[in-house]
Amino acid sequence: MTIGVIKVARPREMSFPESLYLLEIVKGLGVTMGHLLSNIVRQEGIKTIEYPEVRRPMPPRFRGKHRLMKRENGAPRCVACYCCSTACPAKCITIVAGESPDPAVEKYPVRFDIDMLRCVFCGMCVEACPCDAIRMDTGWFTPPDDTREKLIFTIDTLLEK
């Protein structure tokens, strides 16, 4: 049995002036100064995204904040089947079903809360929904808020988006 030896390319030995670093440091300073000056003069070179005003376009499959879809008449499309809350690994969806005022719909969610603090944005709920009633295509994160209660999204908030 032979032991395999892999030759790894070593960095080349430094020449004497390089090993003094003096010139190299000055060169480095030149590079950074170049960036500094060009960025002051030409602001386009700056990569920063000015966050709240400018938003990075999200890829189409990005899983963001949830929203509940509406029927044509504005009622929630959700029929409170509990599939999403059953699939949810974080157990953060609370549904209370009720008899819908619309007899053709029969069942609808009286309460539909998502605890965004517990949600792991896995998208299982969207996958599980037989009615395409819940989506995560808002292209946006959960915004921060100052109380826990405000981050438990109720059916009204979810329908708005």
Binding site: H35, L36, G45, I46, K47, T48, E50
Partner: peptide, 10 residues
């Protein structure tokens, strides 16, 4: 500010 501009930030 200097650090930012050197690093192409704002």
């Amino acid at each position: 500010k200097g650090a930012a501009y050197i690093q192409d930030r704002r």
